[in-house]
Design a binder for these strands. Structure first.
Lengths: 125, 125, 125, 125
DNA sequence: GTGGTCTAGACCACG
DNA sequence: GTGGTCTAGACCACG
C-alpha cells in the first residue's frame, strides 16, 4: 500500500492518510478483505508515530471503511456486491474531475481553456 | 472578493483563505493594483477573528502577493508585465488539471476512463 | 458537571466519561447550549491527561452530542424541541430499568423477588 | 452454561466472561460442584482464544469461585452451607437493583418516575 | 484561554 | 505479533 505524506502540508498527517486510504478503497485499488499493514508497520514505513496510525485505523473503522480485529489485524470492510464497487469506483473518478472543474470555473477559466489544458496534459499520461 | 470557508475542513482557516487569494491572483481574477478589503471588513464578512485575517495578509505580503500600505489599505502586488500575468494564468490552470490527473492515475484509472469522465462533466459546465 | 471515574474498572477511562456525559444529556441534566468545562479543566479535575478528554470531546462531537468551537469552547448540542428532550429523558430511564430487569431475569430471579427487592431499596431513596 | 459476549464492548472479553460466571454462581444458577466446560470447549463455543479462557479460569480459581483439578476438570467451588448460598443470592439481586437506582438518582430522576418505569417494565416480564 | 495534532514510550488484551 | 489505552509534553490555530 503506497501512501505519500507531505509533512509540510497544513492538512494533518492523519487526515492525509485517511483520505488516501478512503480513495484507494473507493477506486478499487484496495478490495474488500484485503489486509492492511499492521499499525506498527505502517507507522514505521511512513515515519510517523504509532498513535497517529492507530487514530487513522480507528476513524476508518468507525466509518465502516475497514474492519479491525484485536490481535488479528485490519482488513478492508466487506461490501455487498461487485456492482456497488463498480459504482463507487465511477463516483470517485467523477468527484476528482468535478472538483478540478469547479475550481477552474470559480477562478474564471473558460471551458475551452480547460478543455485544451486537459487534452494537453492527457498526452503525456 | 468572494471567498468560501469550510469551518469543518481540517485545513486551517488561514490556509484556506491564503490559498484562495493566491489562486485568484494567479488566475487573474484579482489584478495588480486591485484593492483588498480591510482586515476588519474581511474578518467580519467571513465570520472569523481579526487576528486570523491579519495573519493572512501578513503571510501574503511577505510572499509578495499583496502590498500593505499603513493607513491606506492593501492591494494586489504589481507585476512587471502583462506577459507574466498571462503565463501565470496558464500555469495555474495547468496545475489544477495536472493535480487531478495525477490523483486519478495514482488510483489506477485508465486514461480513457478519465477522458470520458472529463467530457461528461464538461457538458454541464 | 459531576463525573466519577473508577480507575480500577476495566472500562477504559474515556468510555466511562463518554457514557456519563451521554447519560447526563439524555437525562436532561445537561441541556442544549450548556457549556462543558474546557478540556484542560476537566482533565485536571478528573486527574486524567489532556489527550484523554480531548478524545472524549472528539467522540461526542462526532456523535452529535456536543459541539466544539475552536478557540471558544464546547457546548451541549442543540436539539429540535422540548418534546424530543422529554422523550429522550423517558427513554433513558426505561433503558436503565430494563437493563437491570434483564440481568435479573437472566440470572433466574422471579419477578416477585425482583419486585420485592425494588420496593425495599426504594424506601431508602 | 449460556454466556453472551459482545465483541464490540469496550469491556475486555475476559472480564465479560468472568463477570457472568461470578453472577451465575452468586445467583445460584451455577451451584457448588457443578462442572464447568473445559477450557478448549468453552473457548471454541465462544469463539475466543484458548488463552483467554485459561486466564478467566485462573482468575476465578484464584478468587475461590471455581476449583480446577488437573486432568479432571473444573467445578464451581464448594460453599459451607445452604444458608450462605441463599444470602449470596439475595445480595446479588440487591446489588443489581441498587446499582440501577443509584444511576437513576444521580441522573436526577424522581423516585415516583423510577417507580412508574419499574412497574411498567415489570408487566412484560 | 480554548481546542487540535503529534511524539515517545509504557502497559494491557487477544491470538 | 497485532490492536487499544493512557501519560507527559511540545507546538499549532483561533479568539
Amino acid at each position: 500500500m503506497k501512501l505519500a505524506i507531505d509533512f509540510r502540508s497544513k492538512l494533518p498527517v492523519y487526515a492525509q492518510i485517511e483520505d488516501q486510504v478512503r480513495s484507494l478503497v473507493a477506486a478499487g485499488k484496495l478490495r474488500p478483505g484485503d489486509p492492511l499493514p499492521s499499525i506498527r508497520n505502517l507507522a514505521s514505513d511512513l515515519g510517523v508515530n504509532y498513535n497517529t496510525i492507530a487514530r487513522v485505523y480507528l476513524d476508518l473503522d468507525r466509518d465502516g471503511v475497514i474492519k479491525t480485529y484485536r490481535g488479528r489485524g485490519t482488513y478492508v470492510a466487506d461490501v455487498d456486491d461487485e456492482r456497488t464497487l463498480t459504482r463507487m469506483r465511477q463516483e470517485k473518478l467523477q468527484a476528482i474531475v468535478r472538483s478540478a472543474l469547479d475550481k477552474a470555473r470559480t477562478l474564471g477559466y473558460r471551458s475551452e481553456e480547460v478543455s485544451a489544458a486537459f487534452e494537453d496534459q492527457l498526452t503525456n499520461w
